[in-house]
Design a protein around this nucleic acid. Structure first.
Length: 821
RNA sequence: GCGCUCGUAGUCCAACGGUAGAGACAGCGGCUUUAGGUGCCGUCCAGUGUGGGUUCGAAUCCCACCGAGCGCACCA
């Protein structure tokens, strides 16, 4: 059933009932009608409005796993509201799209189906691209990139080599997180708080391996300081997460001299945030699994330590999660000197001290630290208070005491003030196939040799499939001899390629820079173009990347800034983290059987209604419970809006100034208010205001000035433009029915934001509220320009104070008077 | 334990420190309709989690508590 426009263009009022019913719109037909038109006129190319102020709108690029789902639909709907608004406001908008197309699922699928990961990947990309086009997102398709294209990962490799050149990428042997299921190492950021793999949920273990790292710790302070300028522009919880993750803590390094069983002395530095309590340090604790413990242990205790380490290693993954676990540890059989008191204190090893935080050793102050106290009580170690911290004691000025203690340590040469971070370097090697190969060649003679720039990219072999991709504890690439064996670029001797690939977060740490010049083949990005387009003005994406992707991208941007490639330090000026779509109070999942299929929703209600529902459901950052919203209600609203366009009988270009003033006021006020709402992301309220305008227009047509009134045309055109942000198909159809797009060669999406007439934003009269002691007693209709004195006089005359004398009168002309008696 | 966010009609949500209700869902009643799961009109429902404080005036600002969600966590 196709929407009918009455042949004489006079609208539905003249129609019979049957004809009226026929105006029920067929969403499928609308979509099929307009999509080809948009594809033909390509209205969203960046640079179309060269010279206008730029806006860079970015949405986190998708991973190509199957088709789009409700989550994608939500982000894209929210993101597109803003991008389309910017177009309407006359900005030159860059709204790019690409795919984060390296990653494990494609590799696992390839093993299962006996094919190459590229097959699965690129097939899914095509499916998703088609869905995005149907969904009507205002992307500039000419920007399209895929991180798994050699043209892209060539530059990922190039950047890796640059980072190495700059001393920001290095290789070290260290215990790393190992996912036994995915058969690869993981970054700290990819291990969840419960010790499981962020991807697959398997319990992560530790493994000693030589791996590549990015030296993100060099940027810990910069990344922390930069957060200040994001505050207010990024969601609080993301800001808080990043601060937590970087985990700055101030304190001091204090040197303790250990006396080993051999009589040898060894200086061990500890980190403490409480150097003021040094006098109460009655023992030391070394992380049991740190090399230091084994090095200093007295021979008599070595066996006990070894057994303890073995035991804790077994239990660690499950038990470390329990914070109320009883303290365990072993005496190392040696002592150290407390540098302040000169006392000999025992040295223990325990698993409550972490090998990779601080220096892996602590001074224990049981009187003022809960954990140390538990340990001391269990093993009967002395507890010596440094100050009285009981309730009725005089307050203890901790900050001053700490500062004083640091000064003393520095004077004595036994320590100094320092800052410690929780952040660790970023482990980027992965023992998997479907990623950017690390462009390093290992030569027996020359060692690590970078692949010469002219030989980039180091391509993945494209003739392997299925079983050959199976992880074997080392990268599948290592087993492909024709690929792995090469000549050393330096000495020409036999050498092997580094067979690991890069964490896919490396790919996504710079893609937003590539978008300004996606086809450039002489550099990763066009420095000049980025001066024009960068940084991203608005980034929209899931809060699951609060730390990972957003921290890594910030790191890359800081580095590239420092090296002169970028003018800006922070990549994403504003960030919006949308909520998730849930159903019946729970996360959608197969096991719960509460999944909502996006395709089915689109088939049933249409693209516009689904988009409208998602935008209208609530504030963007709130979760949307699909059981609480009504796509059917959205369909009804869109029908009402569309019918308005059919009803309009005046000709395009008619002078609105001749029209009904009451409706004109609603129109102009709505447009004005929407501008403010857009600025603060209140997209749900934008929809509500549009609904009000539709309702007001309906009333004017049916029981007011009538369909021929020029103000009605003005209002309906405004509705079409407002709806073009959320419901592009319906808006476009309205525009055509309004006679504004007769050749089907333009789009309402680029019609431009209507000029707002300031004079129409003020009413003839406003309602002034008269309060007595804050309670409403009367309402007055007054001109908006009324003076405070006049309003006060009117107010005093309007209420009966029962003989009481006004003590004070607060006047806020023209809206309010409060009389205090 | 530390930190962040949020508690408003049956539900989802609005309300520059100034009339608690904009919009919607569900319900109810009418009109339209052969009928209705369409359309139109009307209507019920909260005093803002609790207790203090600031203010002429608090849903809004401050403090405490209760509840929910999230981040970090034997991090020294």
């Amino acid at each position: 059933m196709i929407v009918q426009v009455s042949p004489d263009g006079r609208g539905t009022r003249a129609m019979t009932q049957e004809q009226h019913e026929a105006t029920t719109y067929d969403v499928e037909a609308l979509q099929e009608k307009w999509r080809p038109v948009w594809e033909r006129i390509d209205p969203f190319k960046a640079g179309l409005l060269g010279g206008a102020e730029k806006r860079y709108a970015l949405t986190m690029f998708p991973y190509p796993s199957g088709d789009l789902h409700m989550g994608h639909a939500e982000v894209m709907a929210l993101h597109d509201v803003l991008a389309r608004y910017w177009w309407q406001k006359g900005y030159d908008v860059l709204n790019p799209i690409g795919w984060d197309s390296f990653g494990l699922p494609a590799e696992n699928a390839a093993i299962k189906r006996n094919e190459h990961p590229a097959q699965y990947t690129y097939a899914n990309i095509e499916t998703q691209a088609e869905s995005f086009r149907r969904y009507g997102v205002s992307f500039d398709w000419s920007t399209r990139l895929h991180t798994s294209d050699p043209e892209y990962y060539r530059w990922t490799q190039w950047l890796f080599l640059k980072f190495r050149e700059w001393g920001l990428a290095y290789r070290k042997n260290s215990p790393v997180n190992w996912c036994p299921n995915d058969q690869t190492v993981l970054a700290n950021e990819q291990v969840l708080a419960d010790g499981t793999c962020e991807r697959c949920g398997a319990v992560v273990t530790k493994k000693e391996l030589t791996q590549w790292y990015f030296k993100i710790t060099d940027y810990a302070q910069r990344l922390l300081d930069g957060i200040d300028q994001l505050e207010g522009n990024w969601p609080d919880r993301v800001v808080a997460s990043q601060r937590n993750w970087i985990g700055r803590s101030e304190g001091a390094h204090v040197d303790f001299v250990m006396r080993l069983a051999s009589g040898e002395e060894r200086t061990v530095t500890v980190f403490t945030t409480r150097p003021d309590t040094l006098a109460g340090a009655t023992f030391m604790v070394v992380a049991a699994d740190a090399a230091l413990a084994a090095e200093v242990v007295a021979p008599a205790q070595a066996g006990v330590l070894e057994a303890y380490v073995e035991e804790t290693r077994k239990a660690s993954d499950i038990d470390r999660l329990a914070t109320d676990r009883p303290k365990t540890g072993v005496d190392l059989g040696i002592t150290a000197t407390n540098p302040l008191t000169g006392e000999q204190i025992p040295v223990w090893a325990a698993d409550y001290v972490l090998a990779d935080y601080g220096t892996g050793a602590i001074m224990a102050v049981p009187a003022h630290d809960q954990r140390d106290r538990e340990f001391a009580e269990k093993f009967d170690l002395p507890i010596v208070p440094v100050y009285d911290d009981s309730e009725d004691a005089p307050p203890y000025d901790k900050a001053a005491a700490v500062a004083e203690a640091i000064a003393k340590l520095e004077a004595a040469g036994t320590g100094q003030g320092t800052v410690n971070y929780r952040l660790r370097d970023w482990l980027l090697s992965r023992q998997r196939f479907w990623g950017a190969p690390i462009p390093i060649i290992h030569c027996e003679t020359c060692g690590e040799v970078p692949v010469p720039e002219s030989e980039l990219p180091v391509r993945l072999p494209d003739d392997v499939k299925g079983e050959e991709l199976k992880p074997k504890g080392s990268s599948p690439l290592a087993a492909i001899e024709s690929w792995a064996n090469v000549e050393c670029p330096q000495c020409g001797g036999p050498a092997k390629r580094d067979s690991d690939t890069m964490d896919t977060f490396v790919d996504s740490s710079w893609y937003f820079l590539r978008y300004v010049s996606p086809h450039l083949d002489t550099a990763p990005f066009d420095v000049e173009a980025l001066k024009q387009w960068g940084p991203v003005d608005q980034y929209v994406g899931g809060v699951e990347h609060a730390v990972l992707h957003l921290l890594y991208s910030r790191f890359f941007t800081y580095v590239l800034h420092d090296k002169g490639y970028l003018e800006f330090e922070e990549p994403f000026t504003r960030l919006m983290s949308q909520g998730v779509v849930i159903n019946q109070g729970k996360k959608m999942s197969k096991s719960l059987g509460n999944g909502v299929n996006l395709g089915e929703q689109l088939d049933e209600f249409g693209v516009d209604a689904v988009r409208l529902t998602l935008v209208f459901a609530g504030p963007p950052e709130d979760n949307i419970d699909w059981a609480d919203v009504s796509p059917a209600g959205s369909v009804r609203f869109l029908q009402r809006a569309l019918r308005l366009a059919t009803d309009v009988t005046s000709a395009p270009g008619v002078d609105a100034a001749e029209g009904d003033v009451a409706l004109r006021r609603v129109t102009h006020k709505t447009l004005h208010e929407v501008e403010g709402l857009m600025e603060s992301y209140r997209f749900n309220v934008v929809v509500a205001r549009t609904m009000e305008l539709v309702n007001a227009t309906r009333k004017t047509i049916d029981s007011g000035a009538g369909a021929a009134d020029p103000a009605v045309r003005e209002a309906v055109e405004a509705v079409a433009i407002l709806l073009s942000l959320v419901a592009p198909y319906t808006a476009e159809e309205m525009w055509e029915r309004l006679g504004r797009n007769p050749q089907l060669d333009t789009t309402v999406a680029r019609a431009g934001w209507p000029a707002i007439d300031e004079a129409l934003l003020v009413d003839d009269t406003v309602t002034a509220v008269v309060q007595v002691k804050g309670k409403v007693r009367a309402r007055l209709e007054v001109p908006p320009s009324i003076s405070e004195g006049d309003l006060e006089a009117l107010a005093l005359a309007a209420v009966d104070l029962g003989g009481e004398v006004p003590k004070k009168v607060i006047v806020r002309a023209p809206k309010l008077v409060n009389i205090v008696v």
